[in-house]
Computed example of a mutant assay.
Amino acid sequence: MKLQLLRNATLKLDYAGSMILIDPDFGPKHSRPSFTGRSPNPMTELPVATGDILAGVEIVIVSHLHADHFDKVAQDLVPKHLPLICQPGDEEKIRSFGFTGVTPLIDELTVNGIRLKRREGNHGSGAVLDKMGQVMGFTIEADGEPSIYWAGDTILYPPVTQTIEAVSPDIIVTHSCGAKWDDILIVMDAEQTVEVCRIAPEKTKIIATHMEALDHATVTRNDLQTYANTLKIAKHRLIIPHDGETLHLTAPNS
């Protein structure tokens, strides 16, 4: 399989013969307001033209409707006929954008031989949860491919740990920028990402994304790598890709 990080949470996944686009955010640099006054968002340009990103895409997954996961530009550019998988409760809103093949991931779903299962996530804790709204993660499996747990916009809390223990995935994709809202952590930071490395089986590769694109983030790629180095987390276990970078990944012992 191949996994390309485009920017923030936007991934293009070549998996089991299908091309999957996850959480498309296509807005130009500085096209949306700042969260903190530090910078308009997104803070970086897409490293690849949107036409090239969309080339070959057969399945779209939208984890939730925050602008940095499915923005107005992507809503306009993503072909409306493509199968689009979302969390329960978002399907009618997405259909209102003109999409005709919307399916909520209520529990489990198989598409093109790819098995998807919805996983719980908490986009923060305490009072901020109501402001952030519902989100989802998911696991992906297919014969002959590494298993993936895409944790999504979540902090590290018991259901995430339980998913890791139950699934024993080959790959975990984390959102690791340490973004805060009302001074409360709403996605994983360096400490929580490294804790995922400790919780996960030795075989598991952790791919840290959702970094250096939004102005309410508190952790850079260098911050995360430095913290991981101090705790002797091997670089082959914690991978921190740059925007546009493509990773070639295989199942253990394949």
Rank of each mutant, 00 (worst) to 15 (best):
25 D>M: 12
248 H>G: 00
122 N>R: 15
91 E>I: 04
36 T>M: 11
40 P>Q: 11
4 Q>D: 01
20 I>L: 15
15 Y>Q: 08
74 A>R: 01
168 S>N: 13
144 G>E: 05
230 T>K: 08
40 P>M: 09
246 T>N: 11
53 I>C: 09
130 D>I: 01
154 T>F: 03
211 M>T: 01
249 L>T: 02
197 C>K: 04
172 I>H: 12
200 A>D: 01
187 V>R: 09
239 I>K: 02
78 V>H: 09
145 E>A: 02
203 K>D: 02
137 G>L: 06
73 V>Y: 11
169 P>R: 07
76 D>H: 08
215 D>N: 02
161 T>V: 14
99 F>N: 07
218 T>G: 06
22 I>W: 15
19 M>I: 14
226 T>Q: 12
73 V>Q: 12
158 P>N: 10
159 P>D: 12
12 K>Q: 13
161 T>A: 11
91 E>M: 08
221 R>F: 01
11 L>Y: 05
104 P>Q: 07
137 G>C: 05
220 T>A: 12
250 T>V: 12
22 I>S: 11
46 L>T: 13
213 A>H: 03
22 I>F: 15
160 V>Y: 04
66 H>L: 08
254 S>Y: 10
49 A>Y: 07
13 L>E: 04
197 C>W: 04
51 G>L: 07
170 D>C: 04
98 G>L: 14
164 I>G: 09
62 V>S: 06
67 A>S: 14
162 Q>C: 08
35 F>I: 07
176 S>A: 15
172 I>A: 14
244 G>E: 10
211 M>L: 13
215 D>V: 00
120 E>H: 05
252 P>Y: 06
84 L>R: 10
88 P>D: 04
226 T>N: 10
250 T>M: 15
245 E>A: 12
200 A>V: 03
170 D>F: 03
148 I>N: 07
251 A>E: 15
105 L>M: 10
180 K>M: 14
200 A>C: 05
102 V>Q: 13
29 K>I: 06
122 N>W: 06
60 V>E: 00
72 K>C: 02
140 I>P: 01
71 D>P: 08
234 A>H: 09
56 G>N: 08
89 G>Q: 09
25 D>S: 12
169 P>V: 04
183 D>T: 01
132 M>W: 01
138 F>D: 00
200 A>G: 03
114 I>F: 09
59 I>Q: 02
140 I>S: 02
137 G>H: 10
37 G>C: 10
178 G>S: 07
98 G>N: 13
133 G>P: 02
33 P>S: 11
9 A>I: 00
8 N>T: 05
24 P>A: 05
30 H>P: 02
16 A>E: 10
121 G>W: 05
221 R>N: 06
253 N>V: 07
225 Q>K: 14
102 V>Y: 12
5 L>R: 04
235 K>A: 05
100 T>D: 13
74 A>S: 11
52 D>S: 11
125 S>P: 00
64 H>Q: 14
10 T>K: 12
58 E>Y: 03
153 D>G: 02
91 E>V: 03
206 I>Q: 04
192 Q>R: 07
66 H>G: 03
197 C>E: 02
119 R>C: 11
69 H>Q: 13
5 L>E: 06
206 I>M: 03
22 I>H: 14
246 T>H: 11
204 T>L: 06
217 A>E: 15
147 S>G: 13
3 L>S: 04
53 I>L: 13
250 T>A: 15
199 I>A: 09
193 T>W: 06
37 G>S: 10
98 G>C: 13
